[in-house]
Design a protein around this nucleic acid. Structure first.
Length: 230
DNA sequence: ACCCAGGGTCATA
DNA sequence: TATGACCATGGG
């Protein structure tokens, strides 16, 4: 059943932080490309790779599907893991093109599309959910590390559920508010990331909700606690 | 010289 | 199912 606290948390974060404008991409295809490039890397670095692809005329799926993997690898090098990401971009572009493009995928059942996305090498659960939510308009929640950390901190996720992506996703799915659509879930995720970024920083007093050696800032903690109370 | 960042794969138990 | 090694660049 729906958990009213999730809606309250959303409202409070939105009121404090305002619209986050995710996903920062000009087109749905660019969003898909960015989803791969930002894996385990600061968004700043993904942006450099995106700019390089744009400069080479490779910022669309049809072009990537036909491009040489090694040439793509050189371009996306600033995003790290460049060989793996070049291969993933090509595999994803080939698959999506073969399915008739993003428009055709958006019209298919989300669960089936998710399973298929996970078969693409280089696409894991988080990337798949991000694509579903931000590029395909499906009501998918991205239960990434920031979201899990913040939701656990504010008491909306048990520690055991916050430990892994799939556990968190399974625990949250039935509690999403009725009518939680893609724009709402996308904004919820963006807000959770914003709070998480502000909340946990290096070289601050230790925070139990953070990864080892990560420390938290007191002011941001009040923001999160306030959001939990609201 | 570390530690971290908008993950995922693969081998292993 | 769940760990651990590995992938690689850029910023603090």
């Amino acid at each position: 059943m729906a958990d009213p606290a999730l809606g309250g948390l959303y409202a409070d974060m939105e009121g404090r932080l305002g619209p986050q404008g995710w996903w920062p991409a000009e087109t749905a295809e660019e969003m898909v490309i960015g989803a791969v490039l930002t894996q385990a890397v600061a968004w700043r670095n993904a942006e450099r790779a995106i700019a390089a692809l744009r400069g080479a005329g490779l910022l669309d799926l049809a072009a990537l599907a036909a491009a040489d993997v090694d040439a793509v690898a050189v371009l996306v090098r600033p995003a790290g893991y460049f060989r793996a990401k070049a291969r993933a971009l090509r595999a994803l572009a080939v698959w999506i093109s073969g399915q008739g493009g993003l428009g055709a995928l958006a019209a298919r059942p989300a669960a089936a599309v998710r399973r298929a996305l996970l078969q693409v090498r280089g696409v894991g659960p988080e990337t798949a959910d991000a694509i579903l939510c931000y590029a395909l308009g499906q009501p998918a929640f991205v239960a990434d590390a920031y979201a899990r950390r913040v939701l656990r901190r504010v008491g909306l996720l048990e520690a055991a559920d916050a430990g892994s992506y799939e556990r968190a996703r399974a625990a949250l799915a039935p509690r999403l508010p009725d009518g939680a659509d893609a724009p709402w879930l996308g904004e919820l995720h963006a807000l959770l990331v914003a709070v998480g970024k502000e909340w946990c920083r290096p070289r601050e007093p230790r925070c139990g909700a953070c990864p080892a050696r990560t420390r938290c800032r007191e002011a941001a903690r009040r923001t999160a606690d306030g959001a939990a109370a609201g």
